[in-house]
C-alpha cells in the first residue's frame, strides 16, 4: 500500500514537472507560431522535423492574435519563427522592432513581389506565398434568385445583393483589412468610403475570421463571400458549387510572410527554418494541404487549381504605407465610425 502511494505520488510529481517550462528541453528545438490553416501548419512542421531533426513546437493562431502574443512577450520572447499569415501584421511587427533582419541565401530565387516586400520591411520579413483578394458566389443560390453573375466590385452594391454579402470585420481579420486598403487604393479614399457604405447595406454579417465567408458561400449561408481567392478554391475543390471572381476593376493581394522574432532563443535553427521554408520542396507542401496560394519561390510548382495572377488584374499594392500601424489605425477608426456604425 505504502509503496503504491509513493509510486502514485512520484507519478503525480513527474506529471507536474512535465508541465513546467522546458524541463525536458533537448538540443535542437524551434518554436514556430503558425498563422495559416492547421492542415498546412502540421505537414510543414513534420517535413521540417524530418529534414533537419530539429524538434518543432508549433502553435496555430490567426495573424492578429500572433502579433498580439509577440507584442506581449516582447520582453521575454517564447517563439522563434512566425510563419505564415497575411503580410500586414508582419510589416507591423517589423515596424515595431519585434522581428530581426535576416537575408536568406535563397532571396535570389524569389519572385519580384516577394523581394520588393522584403526590401520594404528592411528584410525583417520575407514573402512565402501570395494570394489575390476577390469573392466567390454560390451558383445554385444565384440561379434560384435569377441574379446576373457579378463580375466587379461595383456589382456587389446592387440592391439585389441586399443582405447577401459576407465579409470579415477588418478589426479582427487581416483579409478584411486588405479589402479596406484595396478599395481605398483603387478608388481614392473618399469614393472608397462611399462604396463601403453602400456595401455595408448589403452585408449580412461581419465575421471574425477572414476565411469564414468562403465557407458560408460554399454552404449557401450567404450568396457572396469576400475572401482571398485561394480560400474559395479550397471550398471549390472540396466540391462546393461556387464560382470565383477576380473583380474587373482590379484587386489587391496579400503576401503571406515569415519573420524571425527578436530575441529568438533558437536563432540558428530559426534561420535554418527560414532557408528551408523558402525552398521549392517546402513550398510544394501547400498544394498538398489544399492551400492554393502562389508560392514565392520561382522554382516551386504552382498548384493547377491556384488562381493565376496573370488572369487577375492586380493593383500596385503599397505594403509599406497601408501596412503601417498609423495608417491602419486611422483607416480602421474611420471605418468603425462611418461604415460599421451606419444604418443598414
Amino acid at each position: 500500500m505504502t509503496s503504491r502511494r509513493v509510486f502514485a505520488a512520484a507519478l503525480f510529481a513527474g506529471a507536474l514537472a512535465a508541465l513546467v517550462p522546458g524541463s525536458a528541453r533537448a538540443q535542437g528545438q524551434l518554436t514556430v507560431y503558425c498563422s495559416v490553416q492547421e492542415e498546412w501548419c502540421r505537414p510543414m512542421m513534420a517535413a521540417f522535423e524530418r529534414a533537419t531533426g530539429i524538434r518543432v513546437a508549433m502553435t496555430r493562431k490567426s495573424s492578429g492574435e500572433t502579433l498580439t502574443q509577440i507584442r506581449a512577450e516582447a520582453t521575454n520572447p517564447r517563439g522563434d519563427v512566425w510563419w505564415g499569415g497575411t503580410g500586414d501584421p508582419h510589416m507591423q511587427a517589423a515596424e515595431e522592432n519585434l522581428t530581426v533582419e535576416y537575408r536568406s541565401p535563397r532571396l535570389s530565387e524569389l519572385h519580384d513581389w516577394a523581394v520588393r516586400q522584403a526590401q520594404q520591411a528592411n528584410f525583417r520579413t520575407v514573402g512565402i506565398y501570395a494570394g489575390a483578394l476577390g469573392y466567390s458566389y454560390n451558383v445554385p443560390e444565384l440561379q434560384r434568385r435569377r441574379i446576373e453573375a457579378p463580375r466587379c466590385w461595383a456589382d456587389l452594391t446592387k440592391p439585389e445583393f441586399r443582405g447577401e454579402v459576407q465579409v470579415a470585420d477588418p478589426n479582427t481579420s487581416g483579409t478584411a483589412y486588405t479589402l479596406l486598403a484595396t478599395i481605398v487604393q483603387l478608388m481614392g479614399e473618399e469614393p472608397a468610403f462611399t462604396y463601403l457604405k453602400a456595401l455595408h447595406r448589403n452585408v449580412n454579417q461581419y465575421t471574425r475570421s477572414g476565411a469564414a465567408p468562403a465557407r458560408a458561400a460554399a454552404t449557401g449561408e450567404t450568396l457572396v463571400g469576400i475572401t482571398f481567392l485561394h480560400d474559395a478554391v479550397t471550398q471549390k475543390v472540396n466540391g462546393a458549387p461556387v464560382e470565383l471572381v477576380g473583380p474587373c476593376e482590379g484587386t489587391g493581394y496579400e503576401i503571406g510572410s515569415m519573420s524571425i522574432i527578436r530575441g529568438a532563443r533558437n536563432l540558428d535553427n530559426a534561420k535554418r527554418f527560414v532557408d528551408w521554408a523558402l525552398s521549392p520542396e517546402a513550398q510544394a507542401i501547400g498544394a498538398e494541404a489544399k492551400a492554393y496560394q502562389l508560392p514565392s519561390n520561382r522554382n516551386a510548382p504552382i498548384p493547377p487549381q491556384a488562381p493565376r495572377f496573370e488572369a487577375i488584374k492586380l493593383i500596385d499594392y503599397d505594403f509599406a504605407r497601408w501596412g503601417s500601424a498609423a495608417e491602419r489605425n486611422r483607416l480602421l477608426a474611420r471605418w468603425d465610425r462611418e461604415v460599421r456604425a451606419a444604418a443598414r
Binding site: 514556430v32 502553435t59 471574425r208 469564414a212 458560408a216
Partner: peptide, 17 residues
Amino acid sequence: ARHNLATVYIVGRVEAG
C-alpha cells in the same frame, strides 16, 4: 504552443469553418 487544450483547438476549427 506546447500546452494547447482540446476545447480551444475545437474553437479554432470552428473559426476556420
